[in-house]
């Protein structure tokens, strides 16, 4: 199946490695990762942007991979849970903190929670406010993250096992 009006050649860098595929335009990033690249760390919890289990980083920003057509991401840099710690054998500090805090049970939301936390920490450092940020906080400066901030900013990641308090602790463990 080559390029036709419903397929296009698309190149993505996934966890540092380039992948060129002819994709069905309907293929979303989540299914490309899971079905084409066998990177099943990103999970399908709802397929509609309502649960966060599919969260990955695209060009460093956290997104719901179930709502992104892969063809539209040509040339983008994708980081999944499998590549979060880089090339090293050592887990990412968030992964270690999740283990130490017992911040999961069934584990299905966990890769999304961790990727979301990684993206969220970068957002706060870049001065992105949240719904609970005091409007008087100066704009353009890093936003300090207290528990309320962490909870609000991670609210796009559902956890049905109810590991929320442990997840918040794990994230706080790695706040610089």
């Amino acid at each position: 199946m080559g390029n036709d009006q419903h397929h296009s050649e698309t190149t993505l860098r996934v966890n540092g490695k380039p992948h060129t595929l002819t994709v069905d335009h309907r293929r979303v990033l989540l299914d490309l990762l899971r079905e084409d690249l066998d990177l099943t760390g990103a999970k399908k919890g709802c397929d509609h942007g309502q649960c966060g289990a599919c969260t990955v980083l695209v060009d460093g920003r956290r997104v719901n991979s179930c709502l992104l057509f892969a063809v539209a991401l040509d040339g983008c840099e994708i980081t999944t849970i499998e590549g979060l710690s880089g090339d090293g054998e050592e887990p990412h500090p968030l992964q270690r903190a999740f283990l130490e805090r017992d911040a999961f049970q069934c584990g299905y939301c966990t890769p999304g929670q961790i990727c979301s936390a990684a993206g969220m920490l970068a957002e706060a450092a870049a001065g992105h406010p949240s719904h609970v940020t005091d409007p008087a906080t100066p704009s353009g400066e890093p936003v300090p993250l207290d528990r309320e901030e962490v909870r609000e900013r991670l609210s796009g990641n559902l956890c049905r096992c109810g590991a929320y308090p442990r997840i918040a602790e794990a994230v706080e463990d790695v706040i610089p």
């Binding site: 899971r34 066998d38 990177l39 099943t40 760390g41 990103a42 999970k43 399908k44 999944t80 849970i81 499998e82 710690s85 887990p91 992964q95 999740f98 283990l99 130490e100 017992d102 999961f104 584990g107 299905y108 966990t110 890769p111 961790i114």
Partner: peptide, 21 residues
């Protein structure tokens, strides 16, 4: 004691039913 399957779950390598290719 720490969860035995914990590392697989935080690294995304734990496979669930739809993930057997």
């Amino acid at each position: 004691a720490e969860r035995r399957e914990g590392r697989e779950k935080v690294s995304g390598t734990a496979r669930y039913a739809a993930e057997y290719h």
